[in-house]
Write a protein that binds this DNA or RNA. Structure first.
Lengths: 194, 194
DNA sequence: CTTGGTTTTGAACGTGCGTTCAGTTAAATC
DNA sequence: GATTTAACTGAACGCACGTTCAAAACCAAG
């Protein structure tokens, strides 16, 4: 057996995913060719097929790993109060998404380019994440500290609001990340508080 | 001069735009071919070029007419109180966007597929619309009825929240359009009120 | 029925697509 | 240094793309 360590694939593999992530986010999945990704990495198009069975799977894996990471890092502290849990969620969501603008863009924009089976799987992961927020809102409503007449609607409203940050916020600008987190938390808190 | 009335172009033109709107929204601009649009209309691909100089302009005109219509119909009543104006804006935004899900989808998802000059023009129109909301929030903050530490952030937050409705709301579901408008208005009101 | 302009067809253009694969290169092991 | 095998090249496959255009079809007016 030859070349098990120091293999180029340890380097090229991540570079393929990085290039695909960036290009898909900037131009859209359908508008990016395998040759473009290959050129970005510095190989020929054929070499990409050492790292993905096809273009569709490349997109799917990018989205899946993003969602898995999101779920793994989301704060879960059931001993905290609903208000504390909601604040942690809001700050986490903004911070996590801000650190991965390309992945966020893809996860929200390229759903329609997923093959049906892949779409189902990504949607299930997204559903889990939304359920975390919905649970917080329901617990708070039951405890009387939140006033949300429909937890599902409030969940969608808060997530849309938070995710929107990635469309305009740039850290070089007028505001710091924690400024933005503070202000969004203030708005969310007021919106749901009884 | 022959065939000035009863001309087919009066029929085919709108049908081309309708088909393009629907297909672009469902599959994305880059993933839709001119032949697909033509097939939907029932003509050959070449015939489309009687109605648009090229595919890019077809997308641009769809987006532009959507934004122009949005600006034309947005409520402007400077004699009303900031709270009343904000409520009218919230209800209008949800209602207008709900009636045009395909156009909304395109206007928010296909910006990156616009040629630079076209992008600039669409962004200018969007900026005008956002300025309407920002003006309401600033007026309310000046009058002391709103508490928004940064009107720009609040504008982006509210618009993202409202636009998110189109991603999940279907009128056949559990909730009516006015249910949704009521609940979003309740959340927005609480979020910005002093 | 003829005329004349509008609308559409159908074929063609060059280009780039995703993917495959035989062959080449290069590095780790013996 | 020979062997082994992972990694990559470069060419090719059939296909679909946006766009063009001469010719045909069509229809209202004269």
């Amino acid at each position: 057996m030859a070349r098990t360590t120091g293999s180029h694939s340890d380097i090229t593999g991540p570079r393929v995913r990085d290039a695909a992530l960036r290009l898909f986010a900037r131009q859209g999945y359908a508008a990016v060719s395998m040759r473009q990704i290959a050129a970005e990495v510095g190989v020929q198009a054929g070499a990409l097929y050492n790292y993905t069975p096809d273009k569709q799977t490349l997109l799917f894996e990018l989205m899946r790993s993003h969602m898995v990471e999101l779920l793994a890092e989301a704060p879960v502290d059931m001993s905290a109060s609903p208000t504390q849990r909601l604040e942690a969620f809001v700050r986490f969501h903004i911070g996590f998404h801000h650190a991965r603008p390309d992945a966020v863009f893809i996860a929200y924009m390229e759903l329609r380019n997923l093959a049906p089976a892949n779409f189902t799987e990504i949607e299930a992961l997204r559903g889990k994440y939304e359920a975390m927020l919905e649970g917080i809102l329901r617990d708070g409503a039951r405890a009387g500290v939140f006033d949300v007449s429909d937890a599902k609607i409030a969940t969608m409203a808060v997530i849309a609001m938070l995710t929107g940050v990635t469309t305009w916020f740039r850290a070089e600008g007028r505001l710091s990340l924690s400024d933005v987190q503070d202000q969004y938390w203030a708005m969310v808190r007021k919106a749901v508080t009884a």
